[in-house]
Design a protein around this nucleic acid. Structure first.
Length: 258
DNA sequence: ATGGTTGTTCCACAA
């Protein structure tokens, strides 16, 4: 089973990039973030024509997540549980069962600038995610949480660690929260399979020639429960879509399970 | 130190 995650930075602006990639790569599942449209405006028919079922949690202008799958998408849950908190209007999380695997598609808040309520929202969101991930461990299912975590896990995952210390993606507090997710018993697939690989990035800013200079970040991840980690075959970054005209600033990451 | 880019939208805002 081939599962891919891709922050597409607008599904409508990126439609031909995405359909071209689906044709050449043929994943069983694709989870997309930052679709930047309401559910009704999602181009579902174009994906159905390629053999994919869809489930979308959209939002006007910002955020939005979508699931594409060749097999049926079952038991969908839209949004992270609130756990008694106030309503969350941002479309950043969707969870469903596909071929017996519980798959979460998440777009974790960016959190910049750090001295604003945006960072508080990021930390609160990660707390809710932590709680949900604990619940998921108690199910009998293999669990795969895929998406744009907006977290640089370690110095090897950023082109200029010193320069990013004060950023919400790399601040020690952000990294500590990410480690807390792993400490529940989850495996970060790419690093587990490629412990020594350097300069392996999933995002390159549009500005300052970040792509041609390979000034990237590794912020798109797969977190696997023990049952899913047992089935892990490979986890690879496909950088080719970042090189094309009108590319998203993120590129897809692909996980294969046996 | 600054400016560099992209997408959505209505003019800045988010990234």
């Amino acid at each position: 089973m081939k599962i891919a995650t891709w922050n597409v930075n607008s599904v409508r602006a990126r439609l031909s990039n995405i359909t071209d990639w689906l044709k050449s790569t043929a994943p069983d599942v694709l989870v997309m973030q930052e679709i930047k449209c309401e559910t009704d405006a999602f181009p579902a028919m174009e994906f159905q024509a390629l053999g994919y079922k869809t489930h979308v949690l959209g939002q006007k202008s910002y955020n939005g997540v979508a699931l594409l799958s060749r097999e049926a998408i079952c038991d969908v849950q839209e949004g992270l549980p609130l756990y008694g908190g106030t309503e969350d209007l941002q479309a950043r999380y969707i969870e469903a069962t596909i071929s017996g695997v519980r798959i979460a598609n998440l777009y974790l808040p960016n959190g910049n600038p750090m001295d604003t309520d945006k960072y508080a929202y990021k930390l609160a969101w990660m707390k809710r995610l932590h709680r949900r991930m604990g619940e998921l461990l108690k199910t009998e299912m293999p669990v795969v949480l895929a998406g744009d975590y907006n977290i640089i896990p370690a110095a090897t995952d950023v082109y200029d660690p010193k320069g990013w210390e004060g950023d919400a993606l790399y601040h020690p507090k952000s990294r500590a929260q990410f480690q807390r997710l792993l400490a529940l018993g989850y495996t970060e697939a790419f690093r587990a399979l490629h412990p020594k690989q350097e300069k392996a990035y999933t995002f390159w800013d549009y500005q300052a020639g970040a792509w041609p200079r390979n000034n990237g970040l590794r912020i798109d991840h797969f977190l696997l429960s023990p049952e899913a980690a047992d089935r892990m075959v490979s986890c690879t970054i496909d950088a080719l879509p970042r090189a094309v005209d009108k590319a998203s600033d993120h590129t897809p990451v692909i996980l294969e399970l046996r």
